[in-house]
Simulated scan of single mutants.
Amino acid sequence: MVDKAKFIWLDGKFIPWDQAQVHILTHTLHYGLGVFEGVRAYQCANGRTAIFRLPEHTRRLFDSAHILQMEIPFSEDDINQACIEALRQNDQKEAYLRPLIFIGDGAMGLHPQNNPIRVAVITWVWGAYLGDEGLLSGIRLKTSSFTRHHVNVMMTSAKGVGNYVNSILAKREVTKAGYDEALLLDTAGYVAEASGENIFMVKNGIIKTPPSTSILPGITRDCVIVIAKDLGIPIQEARFSRDDLYIADEAFLSGTAAEITPVRELDDRRIGTGKPGPITKKIQETYFDAVHGKKPRYDSWLTYV
């Protein structure tokens, strides 16, 4: 259950949480065409609150909307300022932020015609997405029977609302079987990503992650790539199979919600020692230092409120 904040920014105005309602004929509710972002704000070591990589998230929001032919009636700066002001209005030192672009009510049928493009920014307090214990000790993955989208089936570079039906089906499937998260393969059978996170494996001191051709190009994924290079750890974007992952020395997931979550097991096979490995822990430690403003090298990733 999400704890209510005081206000939600909707179409340019802050309104009380319980009044942020839409009509039952809202087009996106029926047909799934919309885009969104997930952003986190952290309280930094200096006591101030900073939104992590806000401009990059907003840029991807606009890119996603462009791919899906949705004209956002606000500028990127408007959205950035709405995110900052939402935290102030809600007196939140740490929060998850959800910018959402959706098609309002009007015409029905697949073509939304001139229905309004509506915009919201919602903030709520959200802890570790895959659990505090998962961050500390690692999680159990299971390969889903559902396949990740092909690039000509869904627009995989867009963070589209409807794309996540695939993720929901996979997540439900594996959690019902007792696992923490789903691993999805691409249409060629190679590892793609988890239901809501990108994936990395470590073998012989080299980090590998699937190429961004058929997955959402994660912003946290980009952080991992930058951090690894800064730490002098070799990193490659390359295809690998799930049996490659079975015999990896380490594995971990990345995402705004999941942050850096180690993987201790896949398909009932222990990954490495079954505990977070040294490279995973170093990446995780550096990432958390960065989001909390403890690494001046990454201060450009922080937008202070």
Rank of each mutant, 00 (worst) to 15 (best):
G134V: 07
T261N: 07
D289L: 05
A170I: 10
A158S: 15
A82K: 01
A65V: 05
T49Q: 01
E285M: 04
L231C: 05
D249G: 07
P217A: 06
F252D: 10
V161I: 11
R140I: 00
R88E: 10
F7Y: 14
A251F: 03
I139Y: 01
S157N: 15
R140K: 15
L183K: 08
Q92N: 14
A158Q: 07
P276H: 10
V226P: 04
D244V: 11
G232T: 04
I199V: 15
N80K: 13
E94D: 15
P16I: 10
D11T: 11
C83G: 12
P55M: 09
Y287L: 09
E76Y: 06
K93H: 14
N204S: 10
T273V: 09
F252M: 08
D18T: 15
L253P: 01
T58P: 12
K171I: 03
D3E: 13
I8N: 11
R269W: 03
D268R: 13
R148F: 00
R148K: 13
D3I: 02
L169R: 14
P210D: 09
S75T: 15
R60Q: 13
T58N: 13
I235E: 00
T213P: 00
I101C: 09
K203E: 04
I117Q: 02
I247D: 13
L97N: 11
F7T: 12
K281E: 14
R172M: 05
G162L: 04
I101A: 03
L68P: 09
T49E: 02
Y304K: 06
I51E: 12
A182F: 03
T209F: 00
I67S: 02
V165Y: 13
A120G: 11
D186M: 03
E85F: 01
